[in-house]
């Protein structure tokens, strides 16, 4: 089963990379952008047929390694 995870910086954490991407997009003529935040995306292929169990395992991975909860939030995208 493939599970997708998105990790983003918390709202009150400065994201200088997102800011530079925003400025560059502005410079390229993409107007009306309010904000750009950069994040990380993971595809985890896990040997588990039970959706709930798989999600719990991935949640544990997020808490222990994939995200640093001091600065980041994670979102697990429901398995297909």
């Amino acid at each position: 089963m493939k599970i997708l995870v998105v990790v983003t910086l918390k709202k009150d954490v400065l994201d200088p990379q997102g800011k530079v991407i925003h400025q560059t997009l502005d410079g390229m003529g993409f107007e009306n952008i309010n904000e750009v935040r950069q994040g990380k995306y993971f595809e985890i292929d896990i040997n588990e047929s039970d959706k709930k169990k798989a999600k719990e395992k991935v949640e544990e991975m997020c808490n222990k390694l994939l995200a640093n909860l001091v600065i980041e939030d994670y979102k697990i995208i429901e398995p297909q």
Binding site: V13, L14, P16, Q17, V20, V70, I71
Partner: peptide, 16 residues
Amino acid sequence: VESGLLPGVLLRNKYL
């Protein structure tokens, strides 16, 4: 800090 022995975290330098 990643091991939890110290609080906080080290982010990318402000001016990249």
